[in-house]
Amino acid sequence: MADPQLLSSVRTLVGRQYGRVYAWDAVNAPMIRQWCEIMGVDNPLYTDAAYAADGPHGGLVAPPAMLQVWTMEGLHANNYPPGSTDQNPYEVLKLIEEYGYASVVAVNSELSFTRPVYLGERLYYTTRLESVGDEKTTGLGTGFFVTLVMSHFVEKPEGDEPVGELLFRVFKFRPASARTAAQAPIENEPAKAKRPLPGVSDDTRFFWEGCAEGKLLIQRCSACATLRHPPAPVCTHCHSFEWDSVQASGRGSLYSFVVMHYPEVAPFDHPNPIGLIELEEGVRLIAGLTGVQRDGLRIGQQLQVEFQTFDEQLALPLFRPVGE
């Protein structure tokens, strides 16, 4: 439970307005060109004065995603141009931190644009503490979603003009794990998500070894010849412990299916179609579907197995539609 004193202090801050933060530089061509260069943005309306003069704005404009750039403080933290406010729009985060919520992560950045920003214009923004949510627990830990809205303006002698807004939401939280950042393991390479490996037992080993050789093997009772899948130690028909395996043709039909849309979990593709396939030998198995349109799946459609190797270690059977 959050401390009642904290909740009360936070509540008094919500809705508070913070003063102006000015841009160090007016909107200018060199900063725009360098931004376009690194981002790979090649719209000539931002960099080609002749093209822009004939364009919809009658001159060069700044890329919209640069809106925030103009008012950044730069190398020295909290070093804003003269005339900027001394107030700290992030004071609520400091307040929450004092109650033991040490970590912060940005969650949402929502830019909206009222009009283009032209070369030579000078920007400033004001900040409003829009909301602080109730205490929530996420995968990261327990804390508060804090939403700030920065309203951006251009200075004009005849009255300043709004040009756009940034809604910025962070999660200020106490980490779920006791492990602190400093103790986190340091890896040279980011870990790539891999397919989870199956648990292999004496009963199932033949199946995975078959996949590695490009064979779809089905368990068969040595006593009564009943086929069974998934593999198990005992025949479901005659209770014999004796078994061997046969290679399936790999042909089957779609008995049922599901298409996973959410959550998107690496390394799987999404949407992720998964089938329950009835093999022509009579048993059913679950496997990924490949070469299918998510709207094109049909119960009963004919499929053929193929094998793909993932992460250079795991061969899996996948089923692909075949002409009928």
């Binding site: 931004w35 943005v41 995603a65 949402n108 950045s109 830019l111 909206s112």
Partner: peptide, 27 residues
């Protein structure tokens, strides 16, 4: 930078005369 790359992706498809009215991302 993420914002800049999002602009590039969308603008590359839409062409130079598209006017952005919002760019909302979840990180």
């Amino acid at each position: 930078t993420t914002n800049g790359l999002v602009q590039r992706f969308v603008e590359g498809w839409a062409g130079p005369l598209a006017r952005f009215t919002s760019l909302k991302i979840k990180l």
